[in-house]
């Protein structure tokens, strides 16, 4: 990994990834793709505006001799993106795929950061979802775009055998600077819980998210991997740890007034978080661990990060 291209560097996690990559000794150049230039960035990070034409992207990759691509735009909520309704960038993924797989491309590794939200969540699920488990139905309105984008990356991998494509399915991210949708739920003044449920939850500490991504790019991993910090934790334990006031509520969708509630700061459960807070969700990370990656944080560390988010 010498010259790294980071797509979606405008997201909180993308920005942290770009900076962490630039700090690596063996990395010569980081090219960060984002809509607006940030002049105060790390001196080894070169900013490039997002280019819609894959041929222009390919030309830029050749010019900068890019060997690794990290894509942070597949699952915005896992990148700490707080834009309402931000969905997976399918067209962006197709353009990126077309550029990296083009004949003569210098790229050898493409790491696409996806989400564990691709697994269905209901009362009949196993404790830990594996990478081989079925994903949500493709017609799922909320996640359909993410599935399509993942499928496109897999398709590129099949047709470009010289290119190592790794899809990292990130668990709910928590940590200073990049909190995902579930972490933000626990950051509310009072935290609504679903009455009668105490789900098993699992977070990914932002430090582990960065380390796992760099690990996948450096090792040129191929295939699909779940990423989470060690262990699982019950919601009640997290609430105890964070010393928050919880209000049990009915499992009703807040979809209609979600935008308004967010703006005025009324505690509520978003549609994204509702199934997680009813049935819980956790993933099996043994595949990535077998590849050699050991998470540095456990769920207590993640709960600590949630507490810090509140203070």
């Amino acid at each position: 990994m010498k010259n790294v291209w980071i797509e979606g560097a405008a997201t909180p996690l993308g920005r942290m990834l770009a900076e962490a990559t630039a700090d690596l000794d063996d990395v010569e150049r980081v090219v960060a793709i984002e809509p607006e230039h940030s002049p105060d960035w790390h001196p080894r990070i070169k900013w490039l505006a997002h280019e819609a034409d894959p041929r222009a992207q390919f030309a830029a990759m050749c010019e900068h001799e890019i060997d690794s691509v990290i894509q942070c735009s597949l699952a915005p909520d896992r990148m700490g993106d707080v834009r309402p309704g931000a969905g997976a960038d399918v067209i962006g993924t197709m353009r990126l795929g077309a550029a990296v797989a083009r004949e003569g491309s210098p790229v050898r590794s493409w790491v696409a950061l996806s989400s564990t939200g691709v697994y269905p969540i209901d009362g009949g699920r196993p404790l830990l979802d594996r990478e081989t488990h079925p994903r949500v139905p493709a017609d799922d309105l909320r996640l359909g775009a993410l599935l399509e984008a993942e499928d496109y990356a897999v398709d590129v991998a099949e047709h470009a055998p010289y290119l190592n494509v790794a899809i990292l399915r990130l668990q709910e991210v928590v940590g200073e600077g990049a909190n995902g949708a579930l972490a933000r739920h626990f950051g509310q003044t009072v935290v609504p819980t679903v009455i009668g449920h105490d789900p098993t939850l699992q977070f990914l500490h932002v430090d582990d998210a960065i380390e796992a991504t760099l690990f996948a790019a450096e090792r040129e991993l191929a295939g699909c991997y779940n990423v989470a910090s060690r262990g699982v934790m019950r919601e009640s334990k997290i609430l105890d740890h964070c010393e928050v006031t919880a209000i049990p509520s009915l499992p009703l969708s807040a979809n209609i007034f979600e935008g308004l509630a967010s703006r005025v700061g009324v505690p509520h459960i978003t549609d994204h978080n509702l199934p997680i807070l009813r049935f819980g969700h956790a993933v099996d990370t043994s595949k990535l661990e077998d590849a050699g990656f050991k998470p540095g944080a456990d769920q207590v560390d993640c709960a600590e990060a949630l507490r810090a988010l509140r203070s």
């Binding site: 009362g123 009949g124 196993p126 404790l127 488990h133 009668g196």
Partner: peptide
């Protein structure tokens, strides 16, 4: 179906009942 229900799922979990899924059994 127990685990879909409020309170019931929590109660059976506490006494050591887990969702009857082959993956859970194997694990």
């Amino acid at each position: 179906g127990f685990f879909d229900l409020p309170f019931v799922g929590r109660l059976v979990e506490r006494v050591g009942v887990v969702v009857g899924h082959p993956d859970n059994a194997e694990r």
